[in-house]
Design a protein around this nucleic acid. Sequence first.
DNA 1: ATTAATGTTCAGAA
DNA 2: TTTCTGAACATTAA
Length: 279
Amino acid sequence: MPELPEVETMVRGIRPFVAGRELIGVRKCRCPCRPILFEPALPTVVRRVVGRTVLAVTRRAKRILLELDSGDAFVIEPRMTGLMLLGDPPDAGHLRVEWQFAPDREINSLWFWDRRGLGTVRLYRAEELIQRLGPDKLGPDALVMTAHDWRSRCQATSRAIKVALLDQRLAAGIGNLYASEILHLAQVDPARPANTLTRREIDRLAAANRSVLAEAIRHEGSTLGDGTYRNALNQAGDYQNCHRVYQRAGELCPTCARAKICRIVQAQRATFYCPHCQK
DNA sequence: ATTAATGTTCAGAA
DNA sequence: TTTCTGAACATTAA
């Protein structure tokens, strides 16, 4: 489940090895699963990128961008189980794409590995980037949202705040795991309609958002029970050990120690919260 | 051995 | 316009 902290960790992991390198090839791997969604078709991609240099490796919400000196950019969406890898993959059977760089260093390949195969790799022109990833489509990045952003965005919807947090137009980058964690730290009931939050509560939400995401990045993301998420060198993250509520139903609330963590379902997704201290 | 659950995004319906 | 539902997919737990 790569969310913002996991994708940021991937970007930081591959950047030193990829930025400034010249591409000499891109290929789809021969994995036994269905081929990855690749746009445009691979021969077109190859023609447009071979011989180009990767100027920058950046993150837009949960997407990874490889920005080329031609103005084109690869936009990679890991979705559920996608990983960007420099080292060995968790298993060789789900490798999807290989980017090949001029063979002048120890690491000359970047891989996209994806067990479930929901991830996508696209090549956008500069003008397409603005159109398809611009603020109208993507919303402000959760890592840099201000308290003022939070106030205006929360006011605009009557959906439950937990459900609204998953809307990438409201806060780009938050997913199901961090939504529960952020609301618990902010002590806000996940079922509260977003537009009923007080100014004070929204300020707590903004602060909790920032501290949870920053701390999760510091721990290189969360590797859950299935062990899918890995950093660029195929190492697990740490933040699952810091989870306050996520997948901790039945455990005592770490804040109040008076109630047990509950699991409910909102918009067909699991939510974890403390019924005592989240109001 | 079926069946449910997992989570992100998008298309399409309400 | 806004909100909701289901599909895409692979793997595991029940």
